[in-house]
Design a protein around this nucleic acid. Sequence first.
DNA 1: CTCCAGATTTGAATCGATTCAATTTATTCA
DNA 2: TGAATAAATTGAATCGATTCAAATCTGGAG
Lengths: 352, 352
Amino acid sequence: MAKGTIRLADVAKAAGVSQGTASNVFSRPDVVREEVREHVLETARRLGYAGPSLKGRLLRAGKVNAIGVAAVEPLAYFFDDPWARALLAAVSQVCDASGTGLALVSAKDRHKLDWNIKSALVDGFILLCVEGGEKLVQLTRERQLPFVALALNDEDSSIPSISVDNLGGAAVAARHLAELGHRRFGVLATEFSDDHVGPAGIAEIERAIYSTSRNRALGYWQALDAFGIRRETLPIYETINDKPSVEAGLEYLFSAPEPPTAILAMSDNIALLTINWLRARGLSVPRDVSVIGFDGVPEGGMVEPGLTTMAQPFAEIAQRAVQAVLHDSMPTEGEMIGVSLIVRGSTAAPKQ
Amino acid sequence: MAKGTIRLADVAKAAGVSQGTASNVFSRPDVVREEVREHVLETARRLGYAGPSLKGRLLRAGKVNAIGVAAVEPLAYFFDDPWARALLAAVSQVCDASGTGLALVSAKDRHKLDWNIKSALVDGFILLCVEGGEKLVQLTRERQLPFVALALNDEDSSIPSISVDNLGGAAVAARHLAELGHRRFGVLATEFSDDHVGPAGIAEIERAIYSTSRNRALGYWQALDAFGIRRETLPIYETINDKPSVEAGLEYLFSAPEPPTAILAMSDNIALLTINWLRARGLSVPRDVSVIGFDGVPEGGMVEPGLTTMAQPFAEIAQRAVQAVLHDSMPTEGEMIGVSLIVRGSTAAPKQ
DNA sequence: CTCCAGATTTGAATCGATTCAATTTATTCA
DNA sequence: TGAATAAATTGAATCGATTCAAATCTGGAG
């Protein structure tokens, strides 16, 4: 319709009021006399004015009223990965409630990511640091906007981050199984270091670059220790959280002379793959083998049997992250949130 | 760090060049002499300048370089609903490739939605009109930005929209089953009108407000007609695409004296629920009952047996939609895209 | 040594609103 | 009726960049 776009100034002139008043009509209607307000509004309507341009408003007012969620992944990651989805769903809930916009920022390619972060119109960032967190943090810092890192695999305390209690959670998971009577365990781990798959040794794990996985392993060890199970005897297989590597891990664990009666999976994704694999092999879950996951993604509650897992409080994480970014109250040091055991059908006492 | 933010003007002054030159250093580096450029850059670095503020740039340059995807749903919808997810994954792919940002805009509540749409910093919108499309289109129009409606349930040709060939696709689906030899069908429909669940009559369907469902029904009728199956004899049960209503529909269809050997589901979601229900009843798919879906969501390929379905070309839809919005080349009238039959394990010839 | 085209720089105008001190108008109260 | 006070309106400054016509600088040809 309207060719040369109508500006607030045009409306003001046409209505015979000052620009200041015209502005007030839209952004603080209460301050202008009803009569005048109606008249300006009417004029605006007649001219086809689309309302105050966000661009102009933005410049003056400063706040975009939107936050960006960033990851070193293709954009589709946000819709494909169960953990990311669960988190984003929670973040969007919070944003919804506070009338904040949500922008998705990501790219697998560093250069593009750089540009995307530089040009995202947001007031701050939530960083999904599952992978490539360092890069992400660095890029974001340059932007000089508030940000908070989630699932950061780095214990650099100068990075404002919110993470879950991986060590404590893993300990609870292991204790749960041990208390049910299990004594023969197998661990399917998420990455300890880049591009490595296969059985992982103790020394290797202790100096793993990915702290998430390392802490979960430490948690398992610590809890099992109390039941007299020494870490040297606990088989740990490192996967990359995908089907082939998980199945390779299962082959490895179940080809042992005394196969495990319980699987400690470092992610729900791994746990779910595990249950499928066991089923296909004719093993019953939890009768023959118990499985416990980690994360608490919704999918875990929708399968049969339900997945016992350590649930991250997504809502709480999202709440704090959004608050931190919006109010520029980033945690000065890493903040930690607890996880809670959700017992569903995938764990039970071992067979006699 | 830097308290009072540094502006381009500050850098220019500190470097002893004009603001114009300083601007060029950042946005058209090639035009300024290397020596000067280096000096300005160095000065900027020293001052802790974060680069040209997007806000200022935006005002002058005009383009946000981002599109908004909007729906009349809670924000979490984008991460929960399989169809929305599949579509968004495709849209993000396209955006990724063209360096365009993606903003999620939604709210179940009309007032909030209004505000969210008004205040989204985007160059245009893609509207997910599965539900409440009319409202959405109306709100978006006020914003005077390019937009394109997807899955619009309204045949108003003045609305720029991209939709799939529901009638043709449904016909192909029905023909596929008929050609396999099926003669006893049951239809599980998506909504024909608001808040109605239960068996749907012909007259009712013909004047249904949701054109998507209506056209799919018409497609089924048309194809089956060619096989001598009259529409009066085809049981159609209207669901709201959720578990309870689908199961009620199945109870209805299978309590008939001659239960169907093939189910025509108007969405993959319904089809997937159907397969689960049949399984739980001890009926084998496809041996006892064939099931065909509609949409082609990824989940359909990940279950056992795989779901036969009419696949929407998500990538193509996304491509066109993004192009249309970005280049303001909205289809002047509704544009239609074909769907294609994907045969997987859930359909087969009926038992003798 | 002068002149000129081409390469760089400059400075001011502009984008479209918001904001606030100052001014004008309306209302209240003695 | 007039002063004091409150409410509404104005106008200019401002946000932080980009843009472009005009001014200045170069180097090479004549």
